[in-house]
């Protein structure tokens, strides 16, 4: 079986599995959110400070909250069937518009953080495995234990204190200079300056995980017969490490990295808050606090799609990395 047909088979199977998963997620999310006490009308009425019976009732009617739960669910599914995520009366905008405004920010942040985490994690893991038990291994171990155990918001604040308040090198928050007219390369540099600290705060935890994982998997792979064979063939240590040990050690790392994509979205809430980053995580948090469930359901649906896509990608990458992995 050629590589292409193998990959196509994996793709078809995972896509077929994804459809019922998404439908299940939507219905489950919808029903779970019904359990939260209070609704959007309560929040808006509370914000305005001086509501009356009539205003609260009018708000509820406008949000469709006066309907039975089942009617609301069917209306929501009907919207989805027409490829609409619904309308947020709070923002007075279609949910898809609201999410579209925030999605790029979060995706860029997540991917940058993931790329940073993988790059640093695998590099550090390789160094640790190569010098296992010697001082570089010990030193890096101490460092990543710190990354692993310190909460992201605290690291974020400390980075801000150091680089923004003390040194004044980097901005403390936001996603770009507001109202700037620069373009091209200058714009990229401007955005990158705002990206460094949040991406790093988000990545540190994952750097710790990936480096430990890479180290363990590489040590495991080093004892395998094919490594001894490679050494017997007379390959250079460099070729053995990268061509045989690391390639096989990457399998567990890719699996875990795929699973982390969902976790990154969760961590993004904290980092986006600390750095005032206009992303999806903040939006989700605000949607919970304001009980704006149309927005929240949209984000949850999108996140579940994201996780499914990530899983499919991981399956494909693994099928490519290790031809022995077959569709069951």
């Amino acid at each position: 079986m050629s590589t292409m047909t193998r990959l196509a088979k994996v793709l078809r199977r995972t896509t077929l599995q994804a459809v019922p998963t998404v439908i299940g997620i939507v219905i489950l999310n919808f029903l779970l959110l019904q359990l939260a006490p209070g609704d959007a009308a309560d929040v808006l009425a509370g914000e305005s400070g001086s509501a009356t019976m009539e205003t609260v009732a009018a708000l509820r009617a406008r949000f469709g909250l006066d309907q039975p739960v089942l009617v609301q669910l069917i209306a929501y599914l009907d919207n989805l069937a027409h490829f609409s995520l619904g309308f947020s009366p709070r923002y007075n905008l279609p949910v898809s518009d609201i999410i579209a405004q925030r999605l790029p920010g979060t995706v860029i942040l997540m991917l940058t953080a993931l790329a940073l985490a993988l790059a640093f994690g695998i590099t550090l893991g390789t160094v640790m495995a190569t010098y296992a038990g010697r001082w570089p291994d010990r030193l890096i171990s101490v460092g990543i234990t710190l990354f692993y155990s310190i909460p992201g918001f605290w690291i974020g604040l400390m980075l801000i204190l150091l680089f923004s308040v003390k040194l004044g090198w980097l901005p403390s928050g936001g996603s770009g200079t507001i109202g700037t007219t620069v373009s091209g390369f200058a714009l990229v540099i401007d955005r990158a300056r705002y990206m460094v600290l949040p991406a790093l705060s988000l990545a540190l935890f994952y750097i710790a995980i990936y480096s430990r994982l890479t180290r363990a998997a590489m040590l495991d792979a080093q004892t395998q017969d094919y490594v001894r064979t490679a050494a017997a063939k007379g390959l250079s240590p460099f070729a053995i490490t990268f061509g045989h040990v690391l390639r096989n050690a990457l399998l567990p790392v890719t699996t875990v990295a795929g699973m982390h994509l969902g976790g990154l979205l969760g961590g993004a809430v904290v980092v986006e808050t600390v750095y005032s980053w206009p992303g999806l995580g903040r939006l989700a948090f605000e949607a919970v606090m304001s009980r704006d469930f149309s927005v929240l359901l949209g984000i949850l649906l999108l996140s579940s799609l994201l996780v499914i896509i990530a899983n499919v990608t991981v399956d494909l990458v693994q099928a490519w990395l290790d031809p022995r992995i077959e569709t069951r």
Partner: peptide, 13 residues
């Protein structure tokens, strides 16, 4: 700026 600490920092800087 959603975070109170971040607001304090932005005022300081």
């Amino acid at each position: 700026i959603a975070d109170a600490n971040a607001r304090a920092v932005a005022l300081e800087t």
